[in-house]
Amino acid sequence: MIKVTAIETGKARMKTAQRVGRDGRGALGRKIDIFRDPNWVAPLPILCFLIEHPEGRFLIDTGDTWRNSAPGYLPRWNPFYRQVSIRVAPGEEVGPRLSAMGLDPARDLAAVVLTHFHHDHTGGLDHFPHNRIIGPRENYAVSTGLRGMMTGCLPQRWPVWLKPELVTTDGPPIGPFEGSYPLTRDGRIALVPTPGHVTGHCSVIVRDDDVSYFIAGDATYSQDDLRAGRVDGVTNDPATSLATLRAVRAFAALRPTVILPAHDPDGVRRLAAKEAFV
């Protein structure tokens, strides 16, 4: 028996052009649209997911941190950070959330798994100094240094002790995904490649007896966007993003699958109801 629990770590607001890019616009055009867009979507959850499996507990992503509110935490020289608004109370960070569930964040997890290294997925890393931390090698390579700081990552804010276990999805294929990285010996939890939002982005497939869970990170911002094939404004490769959405839909056509993006306001309800994608 496998259990998946959603954990909300505050709210994020973004421009409408970030959530969905205009058809026909390339990578640069989509960025220009974000800066020009005067419209903001309603606050969206910042979700991470706890998987309870016979081999242990796995946390997928770590959400964001209250330190976004501290002057100087976000680099003022990068105008990207003025296009999003993060609101996290100290008690909303993933560490306190896990503690409220009766878990010791630093001791009671088999691993912390990152779908990618954007700041709203790595902001809670400070809570896990004693844990195995796994992330996609290809995404890590574009998330460090100045390149990372230019593209939504805050490597200068990562814990000084962070030495993630970097992996590649060169394991067995799963449905339409040509490779995977099994996270459990039984293969029921696995990373699969879902590039597009950023290079090297991965998602996590959880295969229970009666249903699969597709923990999508930012491969899509919502199930509705997935269904409609709407690609976000962040991507540097809209064609790859669209191919990823097709692959996710193809996987969900193979067996009942609950789609769980990191910022979908309806995701928690679908998870509770085990509502499969159709």
Rank of each mutant, 00 (worst) to 15 (best):
P155I: 10
G152F: 04
G123I: 08
R137S: 08
H127R: 13
P129E: 09
L125S: 14
M149W: 05
I134G: 13
E138A: 12
G152L: 09
S143M: 11
T144C: 10
N131W: 02
T151F: 12
G135E: 07
L125T: 09
L125Y: 05
H127N: 11
L146E: 05
G124W: 05
V142L: 02
H121S: 06
W158P: 01
M149I: 06
M149D: 03
P159N: 13
C153P: 05
G123T: 03
S143H: 02
P155Y: 09
H121T: 06
W158T: 12
V142C: 07
N131D: 14
P136L: 03
R137C: 04
G152A: 11
E138C: 00
P129D: 08
M149A: 13
G123F: 08
N131K: 06
M149Y: 05
T122C: 15
M150A: 15
P159K: 13
R137T: 01
G145E: 03
N131V: 05
D126E: 13
L154N: 09
R147P: 01
F128L: 14
T144L: 02
G124Y: 04
M149N: 03
C153G: 09
P129S: 13
N131S: 15
P136D: 10
G152H: 06
H127T: 09
G135A: 12
V142D: 05
R132Q: 04
P159A: 14
A141P: 02
L146D: 06
I133W: 01
E138N: 01
C153Q: 09
N139M: 08
L125R: 02
